[in-house]
């Protein structure tokens, strides 16, 4: 089993105020796409109590959670494996984490994007994606560019060496409370 990191995968040190987590099979989202949004809305409602400007925080949290969940649902290679979403309100930051099982192709794409984002390339990536005919992959870029999210991933390979290698990927977005409340 090997583990590597991409982007900015750092965890806060302050003890979490609240730390809800939910898991469900990726197939549930394929069967009812609305469940991505419902889950994101639920977490946002739940977490918004930790913030003063609740309506604004709710909107940003559900936006971010939904993007992470949609990606996990789309790129889960084993649809029967669980997608886990966990959130921690820690000091002045909210950490959102989504874990799922995916394949090598997606890991490569994700690593490239996260590393570019960590080098501050969000604005140029956004501009080039918009003008490109290739249309996916805007969600993470928007989180970094418009909400100053710090994004990273932990990538754990389970069955090393085999041709259909799978990876357990945990994508983490840390967003400052001031960004959540748009202050």
């Amino acid at each position: 089993m090997t583990t590597r990191l991409a982007g900015v995968f750092e965890e806060g040190t302050a003890p979490p105020l609240t730390s809800p987590s939910i898991a469900m099979p990726a197939m549930d989202f394929v069967v009812q796409w609305n469940r991505c949004g419902i889950t994101a809305d639920y977490l946002a409602d739940y977490l918004a109590y930790a913030f003063e400007r609740r309506d604004v925080a709710r909107s940003v949290i559900t936006t971010a959670a939904n993007e992470l969940l949609e990606n996990a649902a789309k790129f889960s290679s084993d649809k029967n494996a669980p997608v886990r979403i966990a959130a921690r309100v820690r000091g002045d930051f909210l950490e959102l984490e989504v874990e799922n099982v995916t394949d090598g192709d997606h890991v490569d794409t994700l690593t490239t994007v996260l590393d570019a984002l960590s080098r501050g390339e969000a604005p140029t990536l956004f501009a080039s994606r918009i003008e490109s005919t290739e249309r996916g992959g805007l969600g993470l870029i928007i989180l970094v560019r418009d909400y100053a999210a710090r994004l990273g991933a932990r990538i754990v390979s389970a069955n090393g060496g085999s041709l259909d290698q799978t990876f357990t990927v945990t994508v983490r977005a840390s967003i400052a409370a001031d960004e959540l409340e748009q202050r």
């Binding site: 949004g37 909107s59 559900t62 939904n66 949609e70 918009i130 003008e131 249309r135 928007i142």
Partner: peptide, 17 residues
Amino acid sequence: VVLMNSSGLRALADLVL
């Protein structure tokens, strides 16, 4: 419009183009 995901924002950008 309460919320729009990134695929929708992409569609708005396509409309601009």
